[in-house]
Write a protein that binds this DNA or RNA. Structure first.
Lengths: 332, 332
DNA sequence: TTGAAAGCGCTAACAA
DNA sequence: TTGTTAGCGCTTTCAA
């Protein structure tokens, strides 16, 4: 076990006191040029790298932030959505000295750990994704002394600091597009209504139809999964056989719905037009290619990280809502 | 800034010495039942949570492992492959006290940081993914005092500890399947040949054809990306217009290749049979659905984590190769 | 501009 | 079975 080079060794080698060496390392003032140079030479001669743990203990700063994903589904992270968020987060953290700790709070253990982080400052900041329903963690996070930024908004309250996509606006855009292309019996398949995104997309659908003076009561309920999309579509078809378009709150569900529609002998977009949400890679490859609402997922991650950095720096950033846009393909 | 509850406070409250309290916390022996109870009560009364940083400094163990992804492409993590690996890794780490730190070493800064971790033990262990070519990090990692397990094998050497999928076997399986279904002019589109997986899949293709006594010289070179698959297919079509099957080293490339084949008026699998590799979600949704080689990605992550834990515990685990299997769909 | 010294909160060796 | 004590490697007053 190779012992590490300590600050004392650097100081000795450079012939200065440890405090002087420390000042140089953290380039603080009050050090003469001569000593500064001597220390720097010693550092590179010895290959000195500060011990992060010791520094953390002394400064009471951890040097790490947590990206937490709270969900009951252990597979969440396999969702390309989160992977992209993580990429965005990482890209801004890479410019700093902060480490990125991943905390998937899917099991009770994970939850507990996240709670402890929040209560006892085991991290300099936390980014919290995917709160559904009245997740108690969300409340705890909002009240914690640790800086927290939310990704997406929980339904039970509006956090002080969050970054979200304009889900409502995106859903309106999609639904308005269906109206403009001449559809009049427009249904929707919702996502989980206990998640902010699910609810917001549903509201956007309602708004658009209300403004067009159309009936917004053709609704099937899903949970964002492909399978639930299929089920909801079957039910819609049974209850509203006259529908001529569907706004589906996720691409996965849209894929399930398209399958059911084809099986029922309906053509897309001839008989029924479809618009999805998220613009996952798959959307380009369905048959026909899926029109969908695209959200800037990486930016979401980047902005969350930036906001957290601002918070840690003692600033008071304002919440951010990122724009979504409609991507027209052949399914509508 | 709420101050944290210290061990001293617990000790005082319980009326015992700090060392006794410490022993209870780490449930070490040599504490009477009475004191043990007293301490436990104090802990829950005060809501004491040990300070991880202080503990790390005292024990010289960091309490965290890093999952490092070394690549020149900042988007790597958006690849569903890594997301799944991460899910697997997390699932076993969740059972331990170890944190999971994510280190995407795409930029120079990231690389440097990873180097420092390796050199100066800023983590208790490292899992290293996606080494391509003669990445110097790989060598450094292999020689590091820090326990390291590789995910996949670099081409330049065989690490002491690694988990890999049976890429070669999978490629053989796929190619043999093409032979068995009566194809005789079988081409391949390779992945990056400076990655272990790319090379192994190519070798598997060669082996299978050699054993069948067929010509293995219809080869197009790609880099795993969809676009490169398309280009390679175009070139293959130009050079070997008689081909009747293609083993493609990744599903993404297979998708690109299928597009080109269709544009060229070839039917799939009528004129040309296709088999991909990886079994990404997309493979189920192509037209026709893509036959492919499936590898247990989450298991890969889980086994990497398990192996690292073993290493940290001072054991000497043996490398692991996880089986792959052929998934037959309509493209072959 | 400099250095001595007192922590940060915990663990572990040692003595009692 | 107990408690005392000396660190872990760094930062940061404070006095010189």
């Amino acid at each position: 076990m190779k012992r590490q080079v300590t600050l004392d060794e650097v100081a000795e080698r450079a012939g200065v006191s440890r405090s002087a060496a420390s000042r140089v390392i953290n380039n603080a003032p009050h050090v003469s040029k001569a000593k500064r140079d001597a220390v720097q030479r010693a550092v590179s001669d010895l290959g000195y790298v500060p011990n992060a743990t010791a520094r953390a203990l002394a400064t009471q700063q951890v040097g790490a932030v947590v990206l937490a994903i709270s969900s009951d589904n252990p597979q969440v992270f396999a969702d390309p959505f989160f992977a992209e968020v993580a990429t965005g987060v990482n890209s801004v953290l890479e410019e700093t000295e902060l480490e990125l700790v991943l905390q998937l709070a899917t099991t009770t253990r994970g939850q507990t750990r996240l709670e402890q982080v929040l209560r006892t400052r085991q991290a300099d900041g936390v980014m919290l994704m995917s709160m559904h329903g009245d997740d108690p963690i969300a409340q705890l996070a909002e009240e914690s002394d640790v800086p927290v930024v939310f990704g997406g908004t929980p339904i039970s309250f509006e956090p002080r600091y969050y970054v979200d996509a304009d889900n409502r606006g995106g859903a309106r855009l999609a639904t308005e597009h269906l109206v403009e292309t001449g559809r009049s019996r427009i249904a929707t398949i919702t996502g989980r209504m206990d998640e902010g995104a699910g609810m917001a997309r549903y509201k956007g659908y309602q708004e658009a139809l209300a403004m067009a003076g159309l009936d917004a009561r053709r609704v099937g309920y899903g949970d964002f999964s492909e399978e639930s999309g299929g089920r909801a579509m079957e039910q819609l078809l049974a209850e509203h056989p006259d529908l001529d378009a569907v706004f589906v709150a996720s691409d996965q569900m849209a894929i399930g719905a398209m399958r059911v529609l084809k099986d029922a002998g309906r053509t897309i977009p001839g008989d029924v037009a479809i618009v999805g949400f998220n613009d996952v890679a798959l959307a380009r490859h369905t048959e026909p290619p899926l029109s969908t609402v695209s959200q800037p997922i990486q930016s979401l991650g980047r902005e969350m990280a930036r906001m957290l950095l601002a918070l840690i720096a003692g600033e008071s950033p304002t919440p951010l809502i990122l724009p979504t846009r409609l991507v027209k393909r052949q399914s509508s």
